[in-house]
Amino acid sequence: QLVEGTVYYWTVIPANAACEGQASQTGEFTTGVTNCEVFATNVPVEIPSDTSETVASQIVIAENFQITGISVSVNIPHTWTADITGTLISPDGTEVQLFSQECGDSDDVVATFTDSGSAQVCGSPIALSGTLKPDSPLSALLNTAAAGTWTLEVFDEFGQDGGSIDSWSLNLCKLNAVLDVADQTLGTFSIFPNPNSGSFTLRLDQAAALQYTAKVFDIRGRLLLERDFNAVGGLLQEQLTIDASSGMYLLEVQTGNSRSVKKFIVR
């Protein structure tokens, strides 16, 4: 299994039972990094005690990305949890049953549901709590689009007990590509010394533009430093310093729509 945010190198060697050819040129790629974000609502929705009814609460997600991981947290106070069934419905209509009529006359569901959770076991004073495995796998929602309206439905089969959906949230993960070091549309610039201790010089000869922006990122794509500079007489040369631990970093230099990225090492 490949490690996230790591540069890997590859080469191809042609071979058969009789002979082996020369290796190709070495290529490289950088694995992406998983980032997760919580989307939540805390607007209570009443579950009536005098009727059998399905109530719903919704979360609208504007950002569109492919889901690589998901968990659902709910806070549903309700007397006699054997009355209720909780179901998550995705924007494309896929339904995942989280729990259904568990724990007899016990009260309340305050839990996080994830495919890696524990089996549902009734407890006290809260009927369902902790990190639990849902009745249906949430993996049915992997590799689907996040954008749209997500719905938590709670069906109360009997009208003698009531409660509410006090709050609930979605923890959705996505795979982010690490900053691409192959994008070299600006031209060649130099970083020296490289490796360094976090202090280095950026130099761009034959600078065609006047204004430039330099940004330093860690290998996960997090911005550590941003500075604006002016080239003088076709030369851009500036001293930059970052407070960073040992590792690989990326320096991006941009002017207008042109940019170039180089790696450097801090020791």
Rank of each mutant, 00 (worst) to 15 (best):
V3N: 14
V3H: 13
T34G: 03
Q22C: 04
G5S: 15
A17D: 13
T54D: 06
V3K: 13
Q1R: 07
S24Y: 05
E4G: 09
A23F: 02
N35G: 05
P48E: 09
I13L: 14
V60D: 03
I13K: 14
T34P: 06
P44T: 00
E4T: 06
Y9M: 02
V55K: 10
V3P: 00
I61V: 14
S49R: 13
G5Y: 02
C19F: 08
N35T: 14
S52A: 15
C36G: 12
S24T: 13
I61G: 09
T11F: 01
N35S: 13
Y8D: 07
T34S: 09
E4Q: 15
F29D: 02
T11S: 14
V55D: 05
G27P: 00
P14F: 10
V12P: 02
G21F: 07
A18W: 05
E20W: 00
E20H: 01
S24W: 08
Q1V: 12
I47C: 09
Y8A: 05
A40Q: 12
C19V: 08
P44R: 01
Y9P: 06
V60N: 11
E53K: 14
V45F: 03
T54H: 09
F29P: 04
S49M: 10
G21P: 04
P48Y: 06
T41L: 01
I13W: 00
T34E: 06
A40P: 06
A17W: 05
T6L: 01
C19P: 00
V12M: 06
F39M: 00
E37D: 08
N35F: 08
Y9A: 02
T11D: 09
A23M: 08
E28Q: 14
V7Q: 12
G21I: 03
Q1P: 08
T26R: 11
A18I: 00
A17P: 00
V12F: 07
E46D: 15
G21Y: 04
N16F: 01
E37F: 01
T41V: 14
S24I: 12
S57P: 02
E28R: 15
V3D: 13
P48I: 11
P48R: 08
V3Q: 15
I61W: 07
T26I: 15
T30P: 01
A17Y: 04
S24F: 06
A40H: 06
Q25F: 01
E37I: 03
A40G: 09
V55E: 04
T34R: 07
T31S: 11
F39N: 06
V43D: 12
S24A: 09
C36T: 15
L2R: 13
V3L: 14
E46P: 03
V12D: 00
P44F: 01
T30I: 11
W10Q: 07
P48C: 08
V43P: 04
T31G: 07
T30W: 02
G27D: 07
E4H: 02
V43I: 14
E4D: 10
D50M: 05
E37C: 02
S52Y: 08
W10M: 08
V55M: 11
V55A: 08
G5I: 05
E37S: 12
Q25Y: 01
W10V: 12
N16R: 10
S24E: 03
G5A: 12
E53Q: 15
G5D: 03
Y9T: 03
